[in-house]
Amino acid sequence: MSAPVTERRADRARRSRAIWLGWLFAAPAVIMYATFVLRPLLLTVQYSLYDWNGIGASTWVGLDNYRRLLTDEDLSASILHAFELIIFFSGVPVILGLFVAATIRDIAQSRLAVVARTVLFLPQVIPLVAAGIMWSWLLSTTGTANELLSAVGLGDLTRAWLGDFGTALPAVGVIGAWVLVGLCTLLLLAGMSKIDPSLYEAARLDGAGPVREFLSITLPSLRQEIGVCVTVTVIAALASFDIVYIATQGGPGNATMVPGLEIYYLAFSEREVGMASALAVALIVLVLACVLPIQRLTRDGSR
């Protein structure tokens, strides 16, 4: 009677020791994560409930900062701009990436494929700041973009692309698309290499052309990779900062103001740490609200 009991007790002791040992091993990571991720996150939530300039005394204002977020046109406009950027940061790279990846796969054996892959991925290696500076030269009044337009007789279209109210935001979007196309292409290519070649063979025997093949085999098989691409690029669009900061700094007249930049200005120029924190919290919620459905959509039905 007593033998199994002691055995069970010993067993439980062993198991709890194992658990504590596990926590011990995890401790360095947990402590780092708690100190540098969770604590700042919670502090941000706390700051968002105060009116505080970062140095002096703070005043409790409850949800006032969030209320202002909904009523202040400048702040809500910046969020709309971020959504507009999704077209350029996600839509263009994913669609273009699919097209390019399919093309490269077709010529996979040739040297051209290697060159194309490298060239397309290069923007990922270049620091975003350098990319931003380079593009602001290309898009300036005397830049290559306008010279090309003039050369083909479209001189009337030339303008300061980043300084024009109508074109500044799309121009910033183009820079983002240029950066992200390579990443999407590479991810999608990796996904394509996992597709069983016999599927294509079978389709071809059934008389499918390249378009049918793409729609019926390639696209469905890439569901997860497309999910990753969309997730990463949507986050890049909503949390964009560096490209905008370098290319336009939010100008002209707030036409390219995005939440990331607004948070930075609020916190460090206007010294409204509370308001900046509230916008940051709202941005986190927004990103999660966009990304979680995408994750669910692409995970379900993949099996």
Binding site: L38, R39, L42, G56, S58
Partner: peptide, 21 residues
């Protein structure tokens, strides 16, 4: 863990130490 963290960070209003002001 979260509760402990919250308790440690949220016990005082930010920037209220009088010395700097």
């Amino acid at each position: 863990t979260l509760a402990t963290l919250l308790a440690t960070v949220a016990c005082s209003a930010p920037g209220s130490d009088a010395s700097s002001a």
